[in-house]
Computed example of a mutant assay.
Amino acid sequence: MFKNVVSFILFSTLASFMIGCNSSSSNKAIIVPDKPETPLTPKFTELGLERHKVEKLMQINGQLLALTDQGLYRYDTNWQIITDKSFHVLAMVAISDTHWVASIKQNEQGFLIESTDAGVTWQQFDNNFGGDFSSGEVARTLAYDNEKQKLYATGLYVLASSSDVGRSWTVEEGQWSSLGTGLGSILLHPEKQDVWYGGQNGIESPILDQLNTETYELTMHGQAINEYLPSPSVIYQILYDPKNNERIVASGEGGIVHSNDYGETWLPLLTEQDYRFHFSPVFDPNDHNVIYTAGWDKGDNVQPLILEMSKDDGQTWQSYTYEQQEFKGGVRSMLAVENAGKTVIYIGLYNNGVVKVTFE
């Protein structure tokens, strides 16, 4: 009996040992070293519109549109102008697929125009934007709330709204014809009752305000972001994170800041960019952890186009440079779209047209 017990113990021990060895071998077999990540190679393609200042790029009904200081253009295989060339188109919004409203300057005067046939024809219409001081006010931004059917716009130091597609305007915050360089950015948050808008005040400090359209509570974030974007500075772009509606990103002179708690606290995202303007950072439509930005160096007429990309939500950045002789690569606007499952970036330059970027 004793021998049987010893034999059983020896057999059990050996079996356990063999199972352990087999398990270890199996684990080792399925552990594969990480493959080095294949570096992305950007392809830059110049699309034309040289000697145009591209204020904004939009895509409506799959069509690429460029708002410039020499008219509104539509791109197919080349650029076709669809407004008068004397129009400096500052902002545009689609009320519907075919009904568009645009803010323009012509001979230093501001006007609102609209098209009801997707840009084929345009008409100027009477409106009271600016109140009694309409000659000094131009709508610098336009945004439309489809649910409330309300149009918003910013001026020098005013946020106004219209319930009749721009004919009559009501001041929401600020006042007409105030001092300042203008409020050039606006965001209607798609999941909250807030309008965010920004720019610069009369002493060249950044403005970033948040107005609740239900309670009319105004929250001013300019002082908080001024810590990371010191004066002189200005806010040119406000956007929300598509994967986190509590996260707000704002950019302008000096770089980019963000808030993960809907404005309670602010942190730097890409700062210490002395005299460099970031007008229009964008999230990748296929991967919302990827952010793109590009800038304009103040005072430099000829400069390379530098596309900056973060694949980890802004923690680290990689730069890609497109440098051509006598190329005016200062960036004014950006647009990221999805095309056949791939991301395409369009970049509007200060005085050198539009550049298309794809990654291979």
Rank of each mutant, 00 (worst) to 15 (best):
R167D: 14
T213C: 05
Q223S: 08
N201S: 05
F133S: 09
V158H: 02
S162L: 05
E147C: 08
E191A: 14
F129L: 06
L188C: 10
W176S: 02
G130H: 01
A153H: 02
G222N: 10
S178I: 02
R140G: 13
V171W: 08
G155H: 01
T154F: 00
H221G: 04
T181N: 14
Q200R: 12
E204V: 12
L187A: 02
A160E: 00
G131T: 03
T215W: 08
S163D: 15
D132P: 00
G222L: 09
L156N: 14
S161D: 15
L208K: 02
A139Q: 01
T181A: 13
D145Q: 08
Q123V: 08
K150G: 14
D194S: 12
Q210K: 07
P190N: 08
W169G: 08
S205M: 13
G166P: 03
W196L: 13
E147W: 07
S185L: 00
R167N: 15
A143H: 07
Y197V: 10
E204G: 07
Q210E: 13
W176V: 03
Q124N: 05
S163T: 15
W122M: 04
Y157G: 15
S185Y: 00
L179F: 12
E217I: 12
A160H: 03
Y157D: 15
E173I: 13
W169R: 03
W196Q: 05
G222V: 04
Q193A: 15
Q123D: 09
E173P: 09
L159N: 07
Q223C: 03
D145R: 05
E137F: 00
I203H: 10
Y152S: 03
L187Y: 04
P190A: 02
R140D: 07
L159C: 05
T213I: 14
T170V: 13
G184I: 12
L179N: 10
G222P: 04
G202Y: 12
L187C: 02
E172K: 12
E172I: 11
Q175L: 11
Q210G: 09
I207L: 11
G199N: 05
Q123F: 02
T181V: 14
E204T: 11
V138I: 09
E214M: 06
M220D: 10
T215F: 07
Q149E: 15
L218S: 07
F133Q: 07
Y144T: 00
L156G: 13
G180F: 02
G180S: 09
Q200D: 06
Y197K: 00
D132M: 10
E214A: 11
G184M: 12
G202D: 14
A153I: 01
L188S: 02
D209M: 08
S168Y: 11
Y157P: 04
S161Q: 15
E172M: 14
L151K: 01
W122E: 02
S161L: 11
N201Q: 02
Q149M: 15
G222H: 10
L179H: 09
Q223G: 02
W196N: 06
D132R: 06
Q193W: 12
L151R: 06
S178R: 12
G182N: 01
Y216R: 07
S135W: 07
T170L: 10
W176G: 04
D145P: 05
G131P: 03
L179R: 09
N146R: 12
A160N: 00
A160M: 00
F133N: 10
W122R: 03
S177M: 11
Q223L: 03
G136W: 03
L159G: 05
S134R: 06
D209N: 11
E217G: 10
G136Y: 08
Y152A: 06
G130C: 04
G174K: 01
